[in-house]
Design a protein around this nucleic acid. Structure first.
Length: 254
DNA sequence: ATCGGTACCTGCACGC
DNA sequence: TGCGTGCAGGTACCGA
């Protein structure tokens, strides 16, 4: 999409725009050219410029929430909230639960600047230092985007399972070998999930509409009531930070 | 400064 | 068949 020009923007759902005025946002987008697209954790930032040469003077920040989809072309549906018509093709935003959002700003968004490091880029020493002194539960910390960017409920559970750490363990008490195991597990899980094209539980598809298949490799997520793949103990579910957390009571220690 | 709880939506599976 | 309940890849905001 880089290099394409936005001819027009049809913004149908003010809720997804987080209260911004659809007409005003349409005016801002129309005529701008896509200069660069980058991902920051779960956020996608589309940098826009007025012409080919000039620096970016607009940013379209997109978050898919739980059920958001960005699709190249295709027919709009019941939950299509935005249609960007480009000089070649179209970009559609679809989101049944409307937890995702699309925002326009002329400055680089401050929220992005506050995100923690990329989990696949942070050195182990920094990760271990980040755990130090934290009184929160490790599951909640892994979901906190200011700690690390990009880890969600599935990959938090899968990482903790592989590391043998209980989701309710206090973050600051994970040190040495256990911290190292968690760090390695996060890297492993994310790399495997990316290679598998992500986890398609119900809605997720890539821009071409293809499902991922990492859901077939989940070892603990939504395995409640089934035997642990390692030891056979029945997998349990607890709430941590109001999120479902799946764990093996035998393999995962506080 | 940090933490937990709540609100925001729609759709689906389940039990009755 | 229809209805109520609980659950679902997330974040922002509030008060403690």
């Amino acid at each position: 999409m880089v290099g394409r020009r936005i001819l027009s923007a049809e913004l149908r759902c003010p809720r997804v725009l987080r209260g911004a005025d659809p007409d005003e946002m349409s005016r801002q987008l129309a005529g701008r050219r896509i200069a660069e697209i980058r991902r920051y954790g779960k956020f996608i930032v589309v940098s826009l410029s007025r012409d080919r040469r000039s620096a970016s003077d607009g940013y379209l920040t997109i978050h898919l929430g739980m059920t958001g989809r960005l699709l190249l072309g295709g027919a709009p549906g019941k939950h299509t909230h935005a249609i960007l018509t480009l000089d070649r093709g179209a970009l559609l935003y679809d989101d049944s639960r409307q937890f995702g959002r699309i925002q326009f700003s002329t400055e680089f968004p401050a929220r992005i600047a506050r995100l923690g490091p990329e989990p696949l880029e942070i050195p182990f020493e920094d990760f271990a230092a980040g755990l130090k002194g934290r009184k929160t539960r490790i599951k909640a910390l892994l979901l906190n985007q200011d700690f690390l960017r990009g880890i969600g409920n599935i990959y938090a559970d899968e990482s903790l399972f592989r590391a043998g750490i209980h989701p309710m363990a206090i973050a600051g008490r994970i040190r040495g070998d256990r911290a190292r195991r968690l760090y390695e597990a996060i890297g492993q899980v994310l790399r495997e999930a990316i290679a598998a094209g992500g986890s398609s539980i119900s809605d997720y598809v890539d821009a071409e509409g293809r499902k991922g298949f990492f859901q077939f490799n989940h070892r603990i997520y939504q395995h409640t009531g089934q035997p642990c793949v390692t030891c056979g103990t029945i997998v349990r579910r607890v709430l941590v930070a109001q999120r479902s957390s799946h764990f093996c009571p035998t393999c995962q220690k506080r």
